[in-house]
Write a protein that binds this DNA or RNA. Sequence first.
DNA 1: CTGATATTTGCCAATTTAGCCAAAAAGACA
DNA 2: TGTCTTTTTGGCTAAATTGGCAAATATCAG
Lengths: 108, 108
Amino acid sequence: MLTRQKRALGEQAKIFKALGHPSRLLMVEALRDGEKCVCELRELVGDDMSTVSRHLAVLREAGIVSSEKRGTNIYYTLKLSCLGIFLECTARAVTRKAREQFEEPGAR
Amino acid sequence: MLTRQKRALGEQAKIFKALGHPSRLLMVEALRDGEKCVCELRELVGDDMSTVSRHLAVLREAGIVSSEKRGTNIYYTLKLSCLGIFLECTARAVTRKAREQFEEPGAR
DNA sequence: CTGATATTTGCCAATTTAGCCAAAAAGACA
DNA sequence: TGTCTTTTTGGCTAAATTGGCAAATATCAG
């Protein structure tokens, strides 16, 4: 039973880990307004196609996105819908932190 | 201007990356109901004190927690309050995923 | 079947991260 | 002062991650 909880914790960490890369975060952000094919995402992040494909695999294995082959392309969709709000929250935290670090050296 | 956005994306990814480790996630989860000293957190995760200290540094540098020296101990506090809801959401996603993988092999 | 396009996979080098031990810091306190 | 106690840091090794190129796969259009 303890093992189950530990496994769950690891799976949960996997979600965060998958989101912990600029390119992957950018792609997930883009997927918030609808599915995109790999080629669109490749264009967005500018990396090699193979690199993008691997990033997407990480997101897929974490359960954050799902993929569907349709016609000649593969489309990726955001599965973890609750992510949106948290993305906004972290974005705010980042600007807040930047402001603090900007003010601090001048203060005191 | 583009550089600023890129930097912000990196900072945001840093938050997720910091949360992408079982021990760190466990500690953050524990901090949801109030500050804890390093020794308490060490006991919680069971790792070497030095390891825990480094994990906490990662969380601190990402801006997720803050620390305060008081008396003989150092207390860590959760700063990113919006995290709570998302933690619950990801926990649900994990159990959902586990259920899906449990059913799938049997089905069809 | 052949060729063109979209995506994934195998392999490899470079960088980063994790975790431990020992040593250093910083207080508290006698 | 010296000596506990708590926490951080230096240094090291093992393991994981990243990203590119080339090759494999799959699928569509003739």
